[in-house]
Design a protein around this nucleic acid. Structure first.
Lengths: 200, 200
DNA sequence: GAACATACGGAGTTGACGTTCCGTTTGTCA
DNA sequence: TGACAAACGGAACGTCAACTCCGTATGTTC
């Protein structure tokens, strides 16, 4: 809704260029600093005045939202592509690994995932909806094949990935600790691992 | 180190009382608002001036540290008590459930866990050390019994619990979602669930 | 190439919040 | 009960970061 040029009047050439510069800079700065990233720093990095940043994105939240939508877009693609994978478990696993990589590359996305409402609450973006539907399909297939525990539900995924996202932050034992985290979670999600029904 | 009255000169009666009021208020406010909790709000809740808060805890960080130490103390106790549980898996599980309950009750602790250095780095508090040692013992026993996967290591625990802590925040599907999270992680940590060696 | 809307830059404003300071109050001890 | 240190309250301060404003510059159109 915010990423493509809304076709009311075509954007002036310099404006279009600057919009991209700001997005690129924001991506870089949020990746490094997470939600502590500062608007001035983003402007500096984009070689643009703060005013210009605010002309394109009226608030910091709007800028974050644009980046999150961007990541969701890519994740939704990953979920769609997973259909090509014949093994239902590998398909499921593959989407989560792709998601974790995105989180590891971008602290900002990982943090805003923490406060993201579910698809049912609030008005989700198209990307969010696509991701939700794609993921549901992948999970349903894996459950039908008896490889994913039957009591896992779609809303568990952002919750679990949010946890994995935490492990992508700085002060952990090793850079790859998020990989350990996701491996453990994936093992816990396999049907044979279930030792009881999940609560509620 | 900061919690008991350091026996240089005994604290005046009103000072001792106010210290407790501040701690109680801080516990309540951090539990609700996490690290966004404001010093003024803590003072208000303790029915005390801000100045008084600062006389007892020189900075906000010091106050947080006191509360974290407090939680670690209780967790270390839980790890010690786990020795009484004859089933090595139940002992392990029990400590993590106790830890998750603490995190669920206190957003602040859950957030500061995210930035807590390991015992090896930095000067850990006594409580942290006790917790580390107790947990190591519990894990060693579970590994020796072949119920905990052998490639799990002590540093995985804060990482995983930190993830569970995320699930204790507000906007999740159900209030008990952190219980689902921990259940999945625990299933992933059982020896038979391991489908491969954890990375690194 | 002139006229005009669109966009730019960045100094300045605003609000939030941790922390300090100091005049006043209160517990303690002789 | 008087004297004094210890402790209190809360207005004021300083900092930091999001956001605004407006004089200037630059694409676009005819």
């Amino acid at each position: 809704m915010a990423s493509p040029t809304t076709e009311a009047r075509p954007l002036r050439a310099d404006a279009r260029r600057n919009r991209e510069r700001v997005l690129a800079a924001a991506r870089a700065v949020f990746a490094e600093d997470g939600s502590e990233a500062q608007m001035d720093e983003i402007a500096r990095r984009a070689e643009v005045g703060v005013g210009t940043v605010y002309r394109h994105f009226p608030t910091k939240d709007a800028l974050v939202a644009a980046l999150v939508t961007d990541s969701f877009e890519r994740l939704a693609d990953a979920a769609r592509d997973a259909v090509d994978e014949p093994d239902p478990w590998k398909a499921f696993e593959q989407v989560l690994w792709r998601g974790a990589e995105l989180l590891a590359a971008n602290r900002g996305v990982s943090e805003s995932l923490a406060t993201l409402p579910t698809v049912e609450e609030s008005r989700p973006t198209d990307a969010h909806l696509r991701l939700h539907d794609g993921m549901t399909a992948v999970m349903d297939r894996a459950k039908a094949a008896g490889v994913l525990r039957a009591d896992a539900c779609i809303d568990d995924i952002p919750m679990l990935m949010c946890g994995v996202g935490m492990a992508t932050r700085k002060p952990h034992r090793c850079a790859a600790s998020w990989k350990r985290h996701l491996s453990i979670v994936l093992d816990g999600l396999r049907a044979p691992a279930a030792t009881g029904r999940l609560p509620d």
